[in-house]
Amino acid sequence: MSKAVLDALKSKFGDAILETSSKNTDESVTVAVDKLIEVCTFLRDDEKMAFDSPVFLTCIDRLGLPVMEHRFELAVQLRSFTKRHRIRVKVPMEEGKLKVPTLSGLWAGFNWLERETYDMYGVEFEGHPDLRRIYLYDEFKGHPLRKDFPKDLRFPLARREWADE
């Protein structure tokens, strides 16, 4: 069912679609960063697409994997209530250039999810209305879900001042 979406995207955007796959019954499409907004607007507004609802938005860090073309990859899952289909839009990103245009303008639900991804991976969403940490606190340094962040590196805010005698 969602194959039709992939075909439509391929025929409409051509080169901007870097890759499509439909493995494990999940359809996904890889899009270049600069075409993301265009593709997403099409996905939302076109009558045959009608992806009206956000599902999730996260980032994949491939540091240390044997096959690593791009270190980071943004994964955006969308769903359509009317057409009952789903698609995952993926955006490759390079380290040092972790900047993506925000999707919160298209689907309000991405607001917090983008904040979460910023918090965990340090992806900056340009044009986001309120981009700050959501799970962690301002004193926290770094982005914990990156693969080079040690699992138990803590930045304590409070510790007791006195010990039992």
Binding site: L136, P144, L153, R154, P156, A158, R160
Partner: peptide
């Protein structure tokens, strides 16, 4: 939970 976010026991903070 032994990670960046969880306090390893509240006796680090209060008796």
């Amino acid at each position: 939970y032994q990670n960046y976010s969880v306090v390893p026991g509240i006796d680090q903070i209060i008796p």
